[in-house]
């Protein structure tokens, strides 16, 4: 002990190097526990090589021992040495989150729409889990909040529905898709006639327009000359089965009537649509999304703002 003590208190060891004449470098020994720590990390590395994939050998590598990951593929159990991809497969099948989601999914799958809509807990789940689904599959056209794009993609957050706004209708739309078609009337109508019909259409939603044009337009709209009433009905309220727009309310999805302040602008907007027609496609999601995903999306879209 006394020898050790003198060492501790004695002169400081240096490496013996000197720079600029007097700058020296201490050469203090390490504490023993530090050295042990170093040896321990070497031992750890060796154990790691044994347990995990580590060393390249020829065209392969050591795969590690005692550390297999087991998961199920097509009903048959498979086991691989440790690797992140197998970990992921396992996590997606039996991870904590996967099980929790599965449990909720089953609850939602077993419930009917009325039950889901009435249960705040299930609704909170649907809203959070479906946000990703909607973002991946629907938001590209309809926007991440479902507001759509004027003239191109309908707004899903309002209470006007071309193909019906009940959850069942929405499910039907997502599953099968729709083709929204209105022929162009460029050849059928003269420019004057287009003008008349446009005025009549605007009058349906309460716009103040000259009565003579409305009268002429109405004749074209409800008569065989235009035949508009086939799809839009004589009252202009539209038909769910045709996906034809309700022209009597304040919502415009193709002609940007609201974006125009002057009546002439509104008329032009409507005229353009009548002249060129409409051809829009909502793709079918059957096959791309499974039944339950479509169910979730139906509820989600219904809840975006105006479900009926």
């Amino acid at each position: 002990m006394s020898e050790a003590k003198t060492k501790q208190q004695g002169a400081v060891q240096t490496t013996g190097h000197a720079w600029d004449g007097d700058i020296q470098e201490f050469n203090n020994p390490l504490p023993r526990w530090w050295l042990w720590g170093f040896y321990a990390s070497v031992v750890f590395a060796v154990l790691y090589w044994v347990i995990y994939p580590a060393w390249p050998v020829g065209k392969g590598y050591t795969t590690g021992l005692f550390n297999n990951i087991t998961y199920t593929v097509n009903g048959e159990e498979r086991s691989r040495h440790w690797n992140t991809r197998s970990l992921l497969v396992k996590d997606m099948q039996t991870g904590d989150e996967a099980l929790k989601t599965k449990e909720y999914m089953q609850k939602v799958a077993a419930a009917d729409y009325r039950q889901i809509l009435a249960d705040p807990d299930m609704m909170a789940f649907v809203r959070s889990v479906t946000k990703g689904l909607f973002g991946d599959n629907c938001a590209a056209c309809h926007g991440s909040g479902g507001a759509g794009v004027m003239g191109l993609f309908p707004n899903l957050a309002d209470d006007d529905w071309l193909w019906g706004g009940s959850v069942e209708d929405i499910q039907n739309t997502i599953t099968l898709g729709h083709t929204g078609y209105m022929p162009g009337f460029a050849r059928t109508f003269s420019d004057e006639q287009l003008d008349d019909v446009a005025h009549f259409v605007l009058s349906l939603s309460g716009h103040e327009v000259p009565a003579d044009k409305v009268a002429r337009g109405k004749q074209l709209f409800t008569g065989e000359g235009g035949g508009c009433y086939y799809c839009h009905t004589a009252a202009g309220t539209g038909m769910k089965s045709q996906g034809s727009a309700n022209l009597t309310d304040n919502i415009w999805t193709i002609a940007d009537v609201q974006g125009q302040t002057e009546l002439t602008g509104k008329v032009d907007a409507v005229k353009t649509v009548i002249r060129n027609g409409v051809n829009r496609v909502m793709p079918t999601w059957q096959g791309r999304l499974d039944e339950n995903q479509i169910k979730l999306l139906s509820v989600y879209v219904h809840e975006l703002g105006g479900g009926q």
């Binding site: 909040g145 309310d249 919502i251 609201q258």
Partner: peptide
């Protein structure tokens, strides 16, 4: 407030925020 969309026009002319 739901930011996207910030507001929506309803068919009866009213405005809806979520």
């Amino acid at each position: 407030q739901v930011r996207q969309p910030l507001f929506v026009q309803m068919s009866d002319g009213r405005i809806q925020n979520s």
